[in-house]
Amino acid sequence: MAKELKIITDDLNFYYGEKQALFNISIELPAKEVTALIGPSGCGKSTFLRVLNRMNDIIDGTRSTGVVTIDGEDITGKDIDLVALRKRVGMVFQKSNPFPKSIFENIAYGPKIHGMTDKEELSALVEKSLTQAALWDEVKDRLGDKALNLSGGQQQRLCIARALAVEPEILLMDEPASALDPKATTRIENLIGELKGEYTIIIVTHNMQQAARVSDNTAFFYEGRLIEFGLTKGIFTKPANKRTEDYVTGRFG
C-alpha cells in the first residue's frame, strides 16, 4: 500500500553564509507517522527540521536551493506566507520555552494572533490542547498560574499544547525530551504515540532508544548528508550502510 506523503524534498541544499550545512537532501516523509532524524551533533538534522517551517530565515545570510513541498506546495519561495506556513507546521524546541505569562495565556497566544477573540471558543481550545498534551488534569485548577512555575516536564508538555492550539498538520520536535528526567521523557514519548494518528511528526533526537521506541521511520544524517532513510525497524536491525550501523550501535556519535 502506497503511503500518503506529506513532505517531499528534492535535492535540497542549505547554506549558512558560505558554509554549506545540507547537501542534496531528497527525502519523502509520510503523513501521520513519526519520523525520527538521528545523527551526531552538527550533522544537519536540526537545520533540516528548521527548513520545514523556515525558522532558519531569522538567521541573516542563510539560503537554500532545491525543492521542499508540503502537500505538493513548494515552501522555499521568497514570497511564501510564513504566517500560514508556520500555522500548519508547529514546532517544539529542545529547551522548553513557555512565555513568562499564565498557563492560559501561553496556550491562547497562538489562536489569538490568528484572530480568535471569542472567550468561550478560546477556553474550549485551551482545554482541548492541554488535554491532547496530557496536561489538562494537572493544571485545570490553576490556569491563571505562571507557566514558569510548572516542572520541566510539564513546561515541555505546555509547549506541545501551545503548538497544538494553532491546529497544525505537522509537528516538528527538536530533541523535545533531552533536558528532561526519564519519567518526564516517558510521558513525552507516550504523548508522541498518541498524537501521531492525527499529526505528521518529525522528531530530532540524540537518543537511539528513543528513536527506536517512538518512530515509524528513521533518517540518518551525517555531515550534512542523508545517509539512510527507511522504516525504523530496518534501520535499527539491518541498516544498509556501514556508517548507519556504526552509529545506531553506538560505535561513534
Binding site: 525558522m55 531569522i58 513568562p100 497566544y109 497562538g110 501551545r162
Partner: peptide, 11 residues
Amino acid sequence: SFREASLALGA
C-alpha cells in the same frame, strides 16, 4: 527562545 516560540506559532 521567546522570539522563536512566538515566530514558530505563526506570529
